[in-house]
Amino acid sequence: MNIVMKWIHLLGSPPYFYRFSGKLLPWLTVICVGLLVWGLYGGLVQAPADYQQSDAFRIIYVHVPAAWMSLFIYVSMAIAGAIGIIWHVKMAEIVCITSAPIGAMFTFLALVTGSLWGKPMWGTWWVWDARLTSELILLFLYFGVIALYRAIEDKRMAARAVAILALVGLVNIPIIHYSVEWWNTLHQGPTVTKFDKPSMATSMLIPLLVMAIAFKVYYFIALLLRMRTELLQRERNSKWVKELVGLS
């Protein structure tokens, strides 16, 4: 226990974190690429075509993991923000604010792929489907977080503001999601198609799970890269950064 706690404290120190993440990144990249190749090969080549949607369903291997990530990142962003506010952990603040653009990117990806999938399935690019609409609102929640962070000049203050906003959003996401679902069932137009996957075949499911893990690892890589950049910027006047870039 003692060693674990000590290590967590060490990770909170910027120079240690910078060195450690630098060592971690190549391994993560190898894992991510490996999983992506496995998942894409399994999904695009090995998995049989769907009996209804034929090959069009294969976009699921990007769409569904991206949609999962969009929520996962929002939750981790809010949790990191809470840790940052409660215990004043600088690293948690950085995790919180650097997660936002990545999460927005995944949300955007889920929206675009959902819309691409909708074209052959529904015959139109956009339907006010409950899940797509929730994703759209989620995208704007991310935009709010990013805009607020950009607008506040004092970045420590901005990190706290963003954390408060992320927590408020976290409480609201279930409310928004279920009210949108309720709204959608009442207003349901001619399309009742849903992205429900009633008992997928294993050969289709495994690549999906592999892709989901690959996306998580990708998030981790992107997060580390962004955190390193943010650290260098914030600590540009400190000794370790100057030594790192060979200024002193």
């Binding site: 609102i137 805009a147 607020l148 506040i152 503001a161 959003g169 609201n172």
Partner: peptide, 22 residues
């Protein structure tokens, strides 16, 4: 959240409208 900002207005809309949807 935005009261201290110069251009809080437009950001305020971005922050609260999604929360108003329910």
């Amino acid at each position: 959240l935005t009261v201290g900002l110069r251009q809080g207005g437009i950001i305020l809309a971005l922050l609260v409208f999604p929360l108003y949807i329910p």
